[in-house]
């Protein structure tokens, strides 16, 4: 009876099998492979490509000794903090709040402009951002016409350029999340506070924001994970340069593995990135599991 029930349960769940197989082979497989390969001297070509040797934690020791790695870790934190947590998140919230006050036509036009940067294929957005920040690009045309000089953004301030570009590219997501969240806030509560004499910013700080804190947490986690994985934008704009000055972890992992042909070392960098993603992912799922207010 017990067995019969379990057998039927198994048959019922048979359709899940193709998805599970795909996820095991192409997602779990590479992750396991990464941790294993990061302990070898696997190369892109030559003898070490066919018969990688076990080198233990040597790649990780190199990571700690290599000045490029702490720099890259710091740049990644700066990139995520500056362009996602501050840039996309605050700008997205501000746009969503403004949209509730502005005329519908204006807010839908502005919304379309913000979403356009997000919907475009990433390589096109990257080319557009590259042209925008290049020496005689649109930004310098504007600054020059105001008499503010024409700095070489991509060489002198590569991180500023890629952070602004990523804010431009990704704000639409936060804006859409916050628009949906703000629509769910009952107007009565805000109105009651208004009657009690609360000012605009007081209502925002003490009523609206606490009511959408679930969405804020979800949004922060998702854009952090998305921004951690950004490669194309940085690669096209600066390729991590000049001299690693904008090499975030994905770019560093790619450069080490494919430009310098050291797959073992590249996967060690990738493994660190996977671990960081896993920690944020675990926190995100804990947040989702908690009952919503």
């Amino acid at each position: 009876m017990q067995l019969d029930h379990r057998a039927r349960q198994l048959v019922r769940y048979l359709p899940v099998l193709p998805a599970v197989l795909l996820l095991l082979v192409f997602l779990a497989g590479p992750v396991v492979w990464a941790f294993q390969a990061s302990l070898t001297n696997a190369g892109l070509t030559g003898r070490s490509a066919r018969n990688p040797e076990w080198v233990g934690l040597e790649n990780y020791q190199r990571l700690l000794a290599d000045p490029a790695f702490p720099l890259s870790l710091g740049l990644t934190v700066l990139f995520v903090g500056g362009s996602a947590v501050i840039g996309q998140n605050l700008l997205g919230l501000a746009i969503a709040l403004l949209m509730r006050r502005a005329r519908p036509a204006v807010s839908s036009l502005a919304g379309t402009a913000v979403v356009a940067a997000w919907v475009l294929p990433e390589i096109v957005a990257a080319f557009a951002a590259y042209a925008y920040f290049s020496k005689d690009g649109t930004l310098n045309q504007l600054l020059g016409s105001l008499g503010l000089g024409r700095p070489e953004w991509l060489y002198a301030f590569p991180m500023v350029a890629v952070m602004l570009a990523n804010t431009w590219r990704g704000t639409a997501f936060s804006m859409l999340v916050y628009r949906a969240a703000l629509n769910d806030v009952p107007a009565e509560i805000s109105e009651a506070a208004q009657m009690d004499g609360a000012r605009g910013w007081q209502r925002l700080l003490f009523i609206t924001l606490p009511m959408i804190r679930g969405s804020i947490a979800t949004n922060l986690m998702l854009i952090t994970l998305q921004t951690l994985a950004v490669f194309t934008l940085v690669w096209v704009m600066t390729a991590g340069g000049p001299a690693n000055a904008s090499a975030t972890l994905p770019v560093l992992a790619y450069t080490e593995a494919f430009k310098f042909g050291d797959i073992g070392y590249g996967t060690a960098v990738a493994s660190v990135l996977i671990l960081i993603g896993a920690v944020f992912g675990a926190v995100y799922i804990r947040l989702l599991k908690e009952p919503r207010p």
């Binding site: 996820l23 390969a37 994985a229 992992a253 990738a270 990135l273």
Partner: peptide, 26 residues
């Protein structure tokens, strides 16, 4: 548990997996 495991899968940065995927594909 299955759905949360799947959701956890979305969280892994795909760009980090590309180097190992290349190795796996080789």
């Amino acid at each position: 548990p299955f759905l949360y495991a799947v959701l956890f899968g979305t969280c892994l940065p795909v760009t980090a997996i590309m180097v190992p995927v290349y190795g796996l594909f080789v």
